[in-house]
C-alpha cells in the first residue's frame, strides 16, 4: 500500500467517525467539537488532492470562524435534552426524505461526472504550480460578476445584523470611550501646593 493511500484511508475513517458522532452525540458542545474534527480531516483529504488553498481556507473560515460562533451559541444556550428528544419520531419522516434526496443527488452527480471513479487518477500538477493564483485568476476574470454579487449579498447580511442589534437611541449614561481616552490627568486631578503650617 502506498503511503498516500494509507493517509487517505486514515483521514477518511476519522472523517466518517467524526461525522457520525456529530449526529449521535447528546452533548451539543461535544457534537460541535466533532464537527471541527470532521472539517479538519476533510481539509486533510483536500490537501491529498493538491487543493491546498481550499484546504487551508476550510480550516481558516469554518474551523477558525464559523465553528467558533457555533460554539459561542451552543455554550450559551440552556439546552434541555429531554424536550429536544420528544419530537424525534414526528420529525423523522421529513428528515428521512431530505436525507434520501441528498444521497440521491450526490450519487447522481458523482456517477454523471465520472463513471470510472475508482480508477480515476487525479491530474498531477507541477511543483511550482500555485493553487491560489489559479483560483484568483478564475475568480477575478471569468467569475467576477458572481463574485461581486456574492460579496454584496454578504454586505447586506452584515448591514441587516447591525440593524437588528441597533435599537434606537442609547439611553444608558455611559461615556463614550472616544472621549475617555483623550482625557489628560490635569482634567481630573488638581494638585494643590500648600505651604506647610507652623504649630502655634
Amino acid at each position: 500500500m502506498e503511503f498516500k493511500t494509507f493517509v487517505f484511508y486514515f483521514l477518511s475513517t476519522v472523517l466518517v467517525y467524526a461525522s457520525l458522532r456529530v449526529v449521535t452525540l447528546r452533548n451539543p458542545v461535544h457534537a460541535a467539537l466533532h464537527l471541527v474534527l470532521a472539517f479538519f480531516s476533510a481539509s486533510g483529504v483536500w490537501i491529498l488532492l493538491q487543493a491546498e488553498f481550499l484546504a487551508i481556507a476550510l480550516v481558516l473560515v469554518y474551523v477558525g470562524a464559523v465553528m467558533v460562533l457555533f460554539l459561542f451559541v451552543v455554550m450559551m444556550l440552556d439546552i434541555n435534552l429531554d424536550r429536544l428528544r420528544e419530537g424525534f419520531w414526528s420529525y423523522l419522516p421529513l428528515g428521512a426524505i431530505v436525507a434520501l434526496l441528498m444521497v440521491a443527488e450526490m450519487s447522481l452527480v458523482i456517477w454523471a461526472t465520472s463513471s470510472d471513479l475508482f480508477d480515476h487518477d487525479v491530474a498531477q500538477t507541477a511543483a511550482g504550480y500555485s493553487n491560489v493564483q489559479a483560483v484568483a485568476r478564475l475568480l477575478f476574470t471569468q467569475y467576477v460578476y458572481p463574485f461581486v454579487l456574492a460579496s454584496v449579498i454578504l454586505l447586506v447580511a452584515m448591514v441587516a445584523a447591525v440593524a437588528l442589534t441597533l435599537r434606537g437611541k442609547r439611553l444608558s449614561k455611559s461615556v463614550s470611550p472616544a472621549q475617555q481616552v483623550f482625557v489628560k490627568s490635569k482634567d481630573r486631578v488638581r494638585v494643590l501646593q500648600m505651604p506647610s503650617e507652623k504649630r502655634e
Binding site: E52, F53, I56, L60, V63, G64, A65, S130, N131, V132
Partner: peptide, 13 residues
C-alpha cells in the same frame, strides 16, 4: 506555497 495562509489558519485555532 500558501504558507502565510497556513499560519493564519493555525493561529485562528
Amino acid at each position: 506555497n500558501a504558507s502565510l495562509l497556513y499560519v493564519m489558519a493555525m493561529t485562528s485555532i
